[in-house]
């Protein structure tokens, strides 16, 4: 397997995913797993954006003066939905954390899983 610059650019994002998964699997409280999920979410979105930019990094807008190398608009358009969905998930999880936080303010799994 040869390492092209496109693949090299993805390495930080993959590292971010691994960090997020590590956080999710090792968190002791609800808030930490919530934030870890957000880290994985962001990393996934960045991967989409970077892959779309592999063809070229200029804006794909048709104007009078045309650019030479466009980035692919298709994945970028699609990832907008994923951003909104990730935001909605976070909002719902925060609402639940708020409700559960009244009874056990530390939100530790040890207390909640009884």
């Amino acid at each position: 397997m040869d390492l092209t610059p496109e693949k090299l650019r993805l390495i930080p994002m993959v590292a971010l995913i691994i960090i997020g998964c590590f956080g999710l699997l090792n968190s002791k409280t609800m808030l930490r797993s919530l934030l870890s999920l957000d880290v994985i979410d962001t990393a996934t979105i960045s991967i989409f954006v970077l892959i779309a930019a592999s063809a070229g990094s200029q804006t794909p807008i048709v104007t009078a003066s045309r650019y030479s190398s466009y980035s692919d608009p298709y994945p970028q358009a699609i990832i907008l939905t994923a951003i909104v969905i990730g935001f909605a998930t976070q909002a719902l999880l925060c609402a639940i954390a708020l409700r559960l936080g009244r009874r056990s303010p530390m939100l530790r799994y040890r207390d909640l899983e009884k």
Binding site: L24, M30, S33, L34, L37, I40, D41, T44, G86, T89, L92, L93, I96, A97, R99, L100, L112, E113
Partner: peptide, 16 residues
Amino acid sequence: LFNAFQYLIGGGLAML
């Protein structure tokens, strides 16, 4: 509520 939280965080990770 806690079950729903587990479902959503597990489902969200699976979808990612």
